[in-house]
């Protein structure tokens, strides 16, 4: 229970409305597994069936985007803050 995880509005239905919850793990993957054990279903909103981080979910360890830290293999430790933010994205109805 040593990593502080900041939950975005759209995922607070999983955490009973909590903006911030505790979780543990040595890597982001372990942390998400621990979160899912407490808040069943939340893993599916963060990780694809193929086991990769969803393309349109941003996850940060402290001030770093985990995409630059090894994604799900990113290390986390006591006292870290993990922030989850859904990407704000979209596009015009045109195929590129």
């Amino acid at each position: 229970m040593s990593v502080d995880v900041r939950i975005p509005t759209i995922l607070r239905s999983y955490t009973g409305g909590e903006k911030s919850v505790g979780a543990s793990g040595d890597t982001l993957a372990e942390l998400i597994d621990d979160l899912d054990a407490r808040y069943p279903g939340i893993r599916g909103r963060l990780v694809t069936d193929e086991g990769a981080l969803h393309r349109f979910v941003n996850v940060y360890v402290n001030d770093e985007d985990v995409r630059f830290l090894g994604a799900l293999e990113a290390k986390v430790s006591d006292g870290d803050t993990v922030t989850i933010l859904p990407a704000v994205a979209g596009g015009a109805p045109i195929t590129r």
Partner: peptide, 16 residues
């Protein structure tokens, strides 16, 4: 892009 947008992830963290 002229057909897609996405907030820069680091800027989004700072603004949020």
């Amino acid at each position: 892009s002229s057909t897609f947008y996405r907030f820069d992830s680091m800027e989004q963290l700072r603004v949020w």
